[in-house]
């Protein structure tokens, strides 16, 4: 029992310390997550008190047992002297539970209402989940203002973003713990979630509904920046891919378009126009590749293209047979997609 008590104290200490992390419920960086954090803290206090009361009662029962003479006389069957006290305590206990529940239900209900409130002028983003990556589309005014990216969300601080959630294959769940709770992406349904970041920084989201083989490696990055930086990023994303200039890069582009790569990927402004895998137009502007699995360095990119199945066994990207020099050229080309 002491172990459990110590555990509770440990929990309280750890949660109050609110260790920072890119994917952490206890480190809210968005309005919604902060609201939910209020529920969490209320719960922790109310439930913690209740638990201590139960443990105190249990402790006193155990303590009384120590002082009693151990006699094996007839068991107690008639009404005992203490039963009046117990009856009254039970009534109080029921009252306490009911009060506690009313408090918790009310707090929960009020926060739930506030979560439903979107706020003015929201940014509109469409996220489509696939096995096992995230397709992201910023819906601007008309097709020319549309930004396509993958496995990364850029958000301006302070402005609500309404994310429209779709799924292409199985059920996934969209979750950025630092910003808000999670919402499922369900084939045949459209869900929405609102994110209102309150501080800049890099966060991480992850699929939270089991979705098959690589569920564990289906993450995405969230970059919360100032509105100016966000706008600059948005403009840069609208640009088409620049033509490569170096001979190696040009060769890489040819291989990319001539081999299997272009069957699935899109690089805007080139012949590669398929939408089955992530849009690669500005691949190098992202922090990670393979849905948050590897950092976006040249070495990791090379490793990923050379053998995706080695990094994410079962992923839908096949191992494309490339010679060492072809691989080198393709990666050089990908490095130009900024």
């Amino acid at each position: 029992m002491n172990g459990a008590l110590r555990g509770l104290v440990l929990l309280a200490a750890l949660t109050l310390a609110a260790c920072h992390g890119p994917q952490n419920i206890l480190d809210p960086a968005g309005k919604q997550a902060q609201d939910i954090d209020v529920v969490w803290r209320t719960m922790l206090v109310v439930c913690g008190l209740m638990y201590l009361l139960v443990m105190a009662f249990l402790g006193s029962a155990l303590w009384r047992a120590r002082r009693k003479p151990s006699d094996d006389a007839l068991p107690i069957q008639s009404r005992t002297a203490a039963e009046g006290v117990l009856d009254r305590t039970l009534t109080g206990w029921i009252g306490l539970i009911v009060t506690g529940l009313i408090v918790l239900v009310s707090v929960s209900f009020l926060v739930d209402r506030s979560l439903a409130d979107v706020g003015p002028d929201p940014l509109r983003i469409k996220v489509t989940a696939n096995q096992w990556w995230w397709d992201v589309e910023y819906q601007g005014q008309g097709p020319s203002e549309r930004v396509l990216t993958a496995n990364e969300l850029r958000l301006p601080v302070g402005r609500p973003a309404v994310v429209e959630l779709h799924a292409n294959d199985v059920i996934h769940s969209f979750w950025v713990p630092n910003l808000s709770g999670k919402t499922d992406l369900i084939p045949g349904r459209v869900n929405f979630i609102t994110l209102t970041p309150t501080r800049t920084g890099a966060f991480r989201g992850q699929c939270a509904e089991f979705c098959g083989l690589e569920h564990a490696k289906m993450a995405f990055d969230v970059q919360v920046t100032s509105p100016q930086e966000f706008e600059a990023w948005r403009r840069s994303q609208l640009a088409r891919a620049a033509d490569p200039t170096g001979p190696l890069e040009i060769q890489g582009k040819q291989i990319f378009n001539g081999k299997a790569c272009a069957m699935c990927h899109r690089v805007q402004g080139t012949d590669a126009g398929a939408g089955i895998g992530p849009d690669l137009t500005h691949l190098k502007s992202r922090a990670t590749i393979a849905a948050g699995t590897l950092p976006n360095t040249r070495g990791d990119l090379q490793a990923w293209v050379a053998d995706p199945q080695g990094v994410k066994p079962g992923t839908t990207m096949p191992r494309v047979p490339l010679t060492a020099s072809e691989l080198n050229a393709v990666v050089a080309y990908l490095e130009t997609l900024r």
Partner: peptide, 8 residues
């Protein structure tokens, strides 16, 4: 040929 890897 070359567009789709053989296994696929």
């Amino acid at each position: 040929k070359d567009k789709i890897p053989e296994a696929q």
